[in-house]
Computed example of a mutant assay.
Amino acid sequence: MHLTTKDRILHFIDFKGITKTTFLNETNIKRGFLDKDKLSASVSDLLLEKIISTYPEIDLLWLITGRGNMLKQGLVYESDSKSSSEYESCPIPVYTLDTITNSSHPVYNGAKDSESALLIPHMPNCDAALYIHTDTMYPILRTGDIVCYKRIADVNNIYWGEMYVMDISREEDENYLTLKYIHQSELGEDYVSLRSHNPIYPPQDILKKNIRRMGLVKVCIRYNCLV
């Protein structure tokens, strides 16, 4: 299915956890802009300017063409929902992301056996945080940096081009954790293409069914110095 600019706007609204009414009020765009019968209509330069001015985190190339990432890379963004449940400051468990692990790894299994806890006021709703011990996202993320993620229950509910933590099964009955961007695969809808930011790692196409668990990375914490 061919997605339009308005379809991508709806994806962004869902990602932010806001309503269409909030989006229209904040961008000062008239009601009806996102009505179902108008989703195929083009978006004028003036309206694109209003959207980018209100939400500077949106990547303009992605918004217009669908190519690249929904959000500009290397920055941290928060949900704009103002409900107390969205902004409730609760510690989240912190684990270590190893390149290879076994099925008993606690990273998706709640706070038990976590190494520490992280508390950042007004951060988006996240389930856990990971210390990175892989260079797949170098140089935007390095060993010792932290990513915070929200669990995704449905492997088909993917924001293309965004960063995910994934627990992946291999044919030899072994599974491993990885941190990658997820893109659409040329092999068909049953596959996804995993891509690193680090150019030394080539893209990898895997079956969706081999993703045992996954989490959408919502916050990145970058250490400039570890000493």
Rank of each mutant, 00 (worst) to 15 (best):
I146D: 08
D173C: 03
R67N: 03
C225P: 05
D173I: 01
N28C: 04
Q204P: 00
S196D: 05
W160Y: 12
D167Q: 11
W62Q: 03
Y77A: 00
N224W: 07
K208P: 12
I29K: 02
N210G: 00
A111K: 12
N69F: 09
M137S: 08
I206H: 03
I58P: 00
C90S: 13
D7K: 01
K82E: 09
K6Y: 00
L24I: 13
K36H: 05
H183G: 03
Y95W: 09
L34T: 12
I13C: 11
K82R: 08
S89L: 04
L48E: 04
L71V: 04
D167H: 12
T27K: 06
P203T: 14
E186R: 10
G188E: 03
F23Y: 06
A41T: 14
L226R: 14
L61V: 01
N28H: 13
Y77S: 06
T19P: 04
E186H: 09
I140P: 04
R212T: 13
M1G: 12
K20R: 15
A129T: 07
I52Q: 07
R31G: 10
N224R: 09
I132M: 06
T54M: 02
K180E: 02
S53M: 06
E86W: 12
G144Q: 11
M137P: 02
T136F: 08
V107I: 15
A41Y: 15
E86K: 06
A129P: 01
E78V: 08
L24V: 08
S42E: 10
P91V: 12
G66N: 00
P199K: 14
I18V: 15
T5C: 11
T21L: 10
C225R: 09
L24K: 05
G215M: 07
L34W: 11
N69C: 05
E86F: 15
Y164S: 03
R67P: 02
I100W: 07
L24Y: 08
S40N: 14
Q73G: 04
E115N: 05
M163L: 15
L216Q: 10
C126S: 07
M70K: 03
H133K: 06
S196K: 01
E189T: 11
L75P: 00
Q73V: 07
T134E: 13
K209G: 01
L47R: 12
N28Q: 10
K150F: 03
T136R: 10
Q184G: 04
I221N: 03
V217K: 11
I120T: 09
L3V: 06
T136S: 15
R151D: 12
N69K: 00
K38L: 11
F15Q: 05
D59P: 00
M123C: 07
Y95K: 05
C148Q: 12
Y55M: 02
H122D: 14
D167N: 01
A111V: 14
I120S: 09
I140C: 06
N28E: 10
R170E: 10
A129Q: 11
Q204W: 09
G144F: 10
T143M: 15
N175G: 00
A128I: 09
P106S: 14
F12L: 13
L179F: 07
I52G: 04
T134G: 06
